[in-house]
C-alpha cells in the first residue's frame, strides 16, 4: 500500500522533479562556472584571499533556490489533493491515515533530497579541485541552512495546502513566512555551524504540522 502511495505521489511530482533537477543543477553549475572564471581572470591566490577576508562564497545566487524548489514541490503535490476535496479519496483508502500522510510527505522529501544531493555532488566534484578544504567547507556550510529551508518550505507549504479553511491558510502562511527567516539570518560562512543540528531537528519537527491540517480536514473544520 505504501508503494501505491509513492506511485501516486510520483505521478504528480515526476515532471516537476525533472524541471527542478535541471534548473537547480543548472544554477549550481553556473555558480561553479563563476568561481572557475574568477580564478581564471584573477588567479586562485587572489580569489582564496577574497573568500577568506571578505567571506565571499560565490554561491549567493543559490540562496533561495532550495526554498523555492521546496515550496513548488509541495504546491505540485498537494494542490491536486485539495482540488474538489480529492484528499477525501486518499483518506478513505483502507490504510492508516498517519502512514498515508507520512508516505506522501516522504515522497516529496525524497524528491527534494534527490535534487539537493545532485547539487551537492556537482559542488563536491568541482570545488576541492580549485579550493582548499577549508574554503570548500565554508561554501557548503553557508549553503546548508538554505538547503534545510528547502525542506522547511516544503513542509510549511504542505501544512498550508492541507489546511481546510482559507482563513487559517493565510494565518499559517504568515507564521511560515516569519519562521522561515530563521534559515536566512546570516550569510557569513560557518555562522550556522553550532546551530545546524538544532535547525535540522527543528526542520524534522515541522513534519508534524501536516498532521494538524489533516486532523482539521477530517473534522470538517470551517473556522
Amino acid at each position: 500500500m505504501t508503494k501505491a502511495i509513492f506511485y501516486k505521489e510520483w505521478l504528480k511530482l515526476r515532471w516537476y522533479f525533472l524541471l527542478a533537477f535541471i534548473v537547480s543543477n543548472g544554477m549550481v553549475a553556473y555558480c561553479m562556472l563563476r568561481i572557475d572564471r574568477a580564478i581564471e581572470l584573477k588567479g586562485a591566490a587572489h580569489i582564496w584571499e577574497v573568500m577568506v577576508l571578505k567571506n565571499v562564497t560565490f554561491i549567493d545566487l543559490l540562496q533561495y533556490v532550495p526554498l523555492i524548489t521546496g515550496i513548488i514541490a509541495a504546491l505540485v503535490q498537494f494542490i491536486p489533493e485539495m482540488q474538489r476535496k480529492c484528499l477525501k479519496l486518499t483518506l478513505h483508502l483502507p490504510c492508516s491515515q498517519q502512514k498515508m500522510t507520512v508516505a506522501m510527505l516522504a515522497t516529496g522529501v525524497t524528491v527534494l533530497f534527490g535534487c539537493y544531493l545532485a547539487n551537492l555532488l556537482i559542488a563536491v566534484s568541482y570545488l576541492p579541485g580549485v579550493l582548499p578544504y577549508e574554503l570548500t567547507r565554508n561554501i557548503l556550510s553557508a549553503a546548508a541552512p538554505w538547503y534545510l529551508s528547502g525542506f522547511a518550505g516544503y513542509l510549511f507549504t504542505a501544512w498550508i495546502c492541507l489546511e481546510p479553511t482559507w482563513k487559517r491558510r493565510i494565518l499559517n502562511a504568515a507564521v511560515a513566512a516569519i519562521t522561515l527567516r530563521v534559515y536566512f539570518l546570516g550569510v557569513v560562512p560557518q555562522s550556522y555551524n553550532d546551530f545546524l543540528p538544532y535547525l535540522l531537528v527543528y526542520t524534522i519537527l515541522l513534519t508534524t504540522l501536516s498532521f494538524i491540517s489533516i486532523r482539521r480536514f477530517k473534522a470538517g473544520r470551517q473556522d
Binding site: 500500500m1 501505491a4 474538489r84 480529492c86 477525501k88
Partner: peptide, 22 residues
C-alpha cells in the same frame, strides 16, 4: 464524491493500478 471526483492526473490504467493495491 460529488461530481465524480477522482485523481485527475492519472489515466484509466494508472488509477486502476493504484486502487487495486489497497
Amino acid at each position: 464524491l460529488e461530481g465524480h471526483v477522482q485523481y485527475h492526473f492519472m489515466n484509466i490504467v494508472q488509477i486502476e493500478k493504484f486502487y487495486s493495491s489497497f
